[in-house]
């Protein structure tokens, strides 16, 4: 009798499984596209949609990504691009957390926003978009505000979290939740032409250090706003960090903060001490 693994093997072209064959396999065996993808990757067959990932990512890297669960906290400027890139790259499970609906002032930069989407929950729009661009990916939409109270529950089972928030106080809560869950946190923040990225590893106090002087309120984004290109740049750098962390290759920004100035076109690396701070 024909089985799914045999079907996948017989319907691969070389090492690639064409999309139509992935669809047919799911239909024929009554399984999800995700299950077909898992079976294929486990047998060294790459869904053809990922063929340009090759050389950057091996098939076993691709399987690691597919079996990963990543939380994206915030689904606005940064979060839209982060979710899109994670799904296209092939991260199999994405939890997206944001309480908001799209408003007109989001339209200049937030990837999932459109005039037709105004008033729609951002996480719902993300869910629709991901079903459209990569239906093998499971997106878990959570229309709620992240906090220290619900954080551990929302992030349970995630290998890492991506900071796409717009509030410093919530970022610091997220950093604490990640510290207690002992998962890495990829951090990004933007304002105007400027942004920064770093990765907090378990045992490090990175966000406490970089926001150590913050007392209350927003940053200079309040006056500078956020144009279309800055979130795309910073989100892409965050996804590059995620890719390295999930596949165990390359050198992430541990103990280093990358400062990006798109106005002067300058990038600086600042050292951030590793480890927990002695005094709070």
């Amino acid at each position: 009798m024909d089985t799914l693994p045999i079907y996948v093997r017989d319907h691969a072209e070389g090492q690639l499984l064409p999309w139509n064959n992935q669809l047919e396999a799911a239909e024929r065996f009554g399984v999800s596209l995700a299950q077909v993808e898992d079976v294929a990757l486990e047998r060294g067959i790459l869904p053809a949609r990922y063929q340009r990932n090759r050389k950057t990512l091996s098939i076993s890297d691709q399987l690691s990504l597919f079996r990963s669960r990543v939380a994206v906290i915030g689904c606005g400027g940064l979060g839209g691009y982060v979710v899109e890139e994670l799904a296209r790259m092939g991260v199999g499970n994405i939890v997206v957390i944001d309480p908001d609906v799209f408003e007109e002032h989001n339209l200049n930069r937030q990837l999932f926003s459109s005039p037709a989407n105004l008033g729609t929950a951002k996480v719902e729009a993300a869910s629709r978009r991901i079903r459209e661009i990569n239906p093998a990916v499971t997106l878990v939409p959570v229309q709620a505000a992240f906090s220290a109270m619900n954080g551990e529950e929302l992030l349970a089972g995630c290998q890492l979290a991506v900071d796409a928030l717009d509030t410093i106080s919530t970022r610091l809560e997220l950093a604490e939740v990640c510290a207690s869950l002992r998962i890495p946190l990829v951090h990004g923040a933007i304002a105007g032409w400027f942004g920064h990225v770093t990765t907090q590893f378990p045992g490090d106090d990175t966000l406490q250090t970089i926001y150590g002087t913050w007392k209350t309120g927003k940053g200079v984004e309040q006056t500078l706003g956020n144009p279309s290109f800055t979130p795309a740049v910073i989100a892409s750098l965050e996804v590059a960090e995620v890719c390295k962390l999930l596949t165990g290759q390359g050198t992430p920004l541990r103990g280093r903060q990358l400062m990006i100035d798109l106005f002067s076109m300058e990038m600086d690396i600042l050292n951030v001490p590793e480890g927990r701070r002695e005094t709070k």
Partner: peptide, 29 residues
């Protein structure tokens, strides 16, 4: 805020030859 590439706070006194670097607070997403 950094003096000679180390994080400092507002009340830190400068010394001869120090390099002070100041970055704005970025919090948007």
């Amino acid at each position: 805020m950094m003096i000679n590439s180390r994080h400092v706070k507002l009340d830190r006194e400068l010394a001869e030859g120090d390099t002070l670097a100041l970055f704005p607070l970025l919090g948007g997403g």
